[in-house]
């Protein structure tokens, strides 16, 4: 049933049946390296281009997630997927072979939240037994799409984030598991007028703040009701801004906040500056790090808030601001 202005609390909560994560070399060398289901040492994933590599990651992640639950592609009713590339080609090319009816999504780096929200709503509404949610990002294809060719000699500012090479897939369904999606808060676009695409944490923090507070108000909870409030890829700069913004509204989440972009890389040794980013950042961290903790019951209830910076190279060149969006997914151990 709908709660408050933007949230849903499921009467019959769908289960997160299984999930899978596929990651690149640098991610494999990071703190979560051993937790990913698959780490490819070769960033081309045996393909010819970065874009094909990203598609392959998505396909592998989907196959792994379905394989873990012994579910065939034919049993999955709908697939919700998206990525960062123009017209979402990484998803289109990647999941074509699976033959699952597809909703192609774009929510920048918040796409994993968008996909999980729609998948869980579809299952809860009884439109199918299994839905698949998948997202990906690839450092090579993202640099090419949004910044410079990889051989170009530029210095990254300290606020810049490192696009994660990785893909996460989640099978949502009615079959019992140890994690349920009990609620969803769909975020709205929040624009504080910032135009700096090299400081995405600052562009997205206001959206994360808005969605987290919306979730707490709509579901009549306090921040302490969650073991962790997990943002997608705010990074070090974005996190400190989020804390300030939340405090300004009378909330303190310092104790139980975690950011996937700060978790996936080691800032000191991996020289990523402000942390990781990209659709794959939140998705792989959720699958490899957060869900196992929920399954074991170490954490009972988590608010997962992937964040996205909505921009294209054209909007940026034309001087538009970079608004943010964030979606909240409530995950509970059961």
């Amino acid at each position: 049933m709908t709660k408050g202005l933007q949230s849903i609390e499921f009467e019959k909560s769908p289960y997160l049946v299984s999930s899978a994560s596929v990651a690149g070399k640098k991610e494999g060398e990071g703190p979560l390296g051993k937790m990913f289901d698959m780490v490819e040492k070769e960033d081309l994933f045996g393909e010819n281009t970065w874009e094909e590599a990203e598609s392959t990651m998505q396909k592998e992640a989907c196959l792994l997630a379905m394989g873990k639950a012994h579910v065939q592609a034919g049993d999955v009713r709908y697939l919700f997927g998206g990525d960062l590339l123009r017209q979402g080609v990484a998803t289109s090319m990647g999941v074509a072979e699976l033959g699952i009816p597809l909703f192609g999504l774009f929510g920048a780096c918040s796409t994993s939240g968008e996909a999980l929200a729609l998948a869980s709503m579809s299952v809860a509404a009884g439109y199918g037994d299994y839905m698949l949610a998948v997202t990906s990002s690839h450092f090579g294809s993202a640099e090419k799409e949004f910044r410079f060719p990889l051989g170009y000699a530029n210095q990254r500012p300290l606020s810049a984030q490192w696009t994660v090479t990785g893909s996460g897939a989640f099978l949502v369904g009615n079959r019992r598991s140890h994690v349920r999606i009990t609620g969803v808060t769909v975020g709205k676009i929040v624009d504080f007028g910032l135009k700096d695409s090299q400081n995405m944490g600052a562009c997205m923090a206001p959206a994360a703040c808005d969605t987290i507070i919306r979730n707490l108000v709509d579901l009549e909870r306090t921040a302490e009701d969650y073991d962790r409030i997990v943002t997608g890829d705010l990074g070090y700069v974005g996190q400190s801004i989020l804390f300030d913004l939340m405090r300004g509204k009378g909330y303190d989440i310092k104790k139980n906040h975690m950011d996937c972009g700060m978790t996936i890389f080691d800032q000191m040794s991996q020289d990523t500056h402000a942390g990781g980013s990209g659709c794959g950042c939140a998705a792989t961290t959720l699958s490899a790090y957060i869900l196992p903790k929920l399954i074991r019951g170490e954490w009972k209830r988590v608010l997962f808030v992937p964040t996205g910076a909505l921009m294209s190279t054209v909007s940026y060149n034309e001087g538009s601001s970079v608004p943010g969006i964030a979606h909240g997914i409530v995950l509970e151990h059961c």
């Binding site: 070399k25 960033d43 450092f139 090579g140 640099e143 060719p149 990889l150 051989g151």
Partner: peptide, 10 residues
């Protein structure tokens, strides 16, 4: 160079 070299990750 474009004929000889392949793109490399940073």
């Amino acid at each position: 160079a474009s004929l000889v070299f392949e793109p490399k990750m940073k």
